[in-house]
């Protein structure tokens, strides 16, 4: 599903690379945590996969597509196969929970009929069927993140990326959210979560890719966050 070969990213006005010669393979259907302290390159890792930024060096393949050399016209098509969840939720403030989720289907040109049946379904999956008509500022952080998750998942993408999804949530809510991600993973969706939330990593016991100063320092199946980090 994801293949990175020798990926290096150096931001302008920084001399140290954010990612340094990273090789990673993630198979279809896996659930992977990318962990590491702030500034270790987790967010860069995620942003590269959706071509929000380009690597300085290296090859990136997502679902068989060469992301680095993808024509900019084709980038929207790539992103439709990748659901994204962010620490700051990135919900449209002037749309309700329902509209935010329906929007993702609107964008990819799904007919109204499909939107009307799938949107409530996925909102029910994340447990928000009673708050469909609330605006983001009327929802709690956990609820907003669940709307964001519903939006990411509503068109059943083969890959779901989450960048610090629990960064703004308290521990109990975080665990709930990760359980939701786990349920989505069980439907066959590949899930990649970038996080420095030690508790959820240890709780889930999934594959862990640890980054430090842009390098992969550990790649372990059924791993934990690691005491040294």
């Amino acid at each position: 599903m994801i293949k990175m070969r020798g990926v290096t990213k150096i931001y302008e006005q920084h001399d140290k690379p954010a990612l340094d010669n990273v090789d990673v393979d993630i198979e279809k259907g896996e659930f992977v945590f990318v962990v590491g302290p702030s500034g270790s390159g987790k967010t860069t890792f995620i942003r590269l996969l959706i071509k929000e930024i380009l690597p300085t060096k290296g090859e990136i393949f997502v679902a068989g597509q060469d992301v680095v050399h993808l024509r900019s016209r084709k980038v929207p098509l790539l992103r439709r196969n990748i659901g994204c969840v962010f620490q700051d939720f990135k919900l449209l403030p002037n749309k309700t929970a329902y509209e935010n989720v329906a929007f993702a289907l609107d964008v990819i040109g799904r007919p109204e009929r499909v939107i009307r049946s799938q949107t409530p379904e996925v909102l029910k999956l994340v447990g928000l069927e009673k708050k469909m008509n609330s605006y983001p500022d009327e929802l709690s952080g956990g609820e907003q993140q669940r709307v964001s998750l519903a939006r990411a998942f509503v068109n059943r993408p083969p890959l779901l990326l989450a960048d610090e999804p629990t960064g703004n949530l308290d521990p109990a809510i975080s665990r709930e959210l990760i359980s939701l991600l786990d349920r989505i993973n069980r439907t066959g969706t590949t899930v990649v979560v970038a996080t420095h939330d030690r508790e959820i990593v240890n709780f889930m016991r999934k594959r862990v890719v640890a980054l430090e100063e842009g390098k992969v320092v550990r790649d372990q199946l059924r791993g934990v966050y690691g005491h040294e980090d």
Partner: peptide, 12 residues
């Protein structure tokens, strides 16, 4: 922000 979100969700 709205525009950025549209683009992230895959809007052309």
């Amino acid at each position: 922000k709205e525009v950025a979100i549209m683009k992230l969700v895959g809007a052309s």
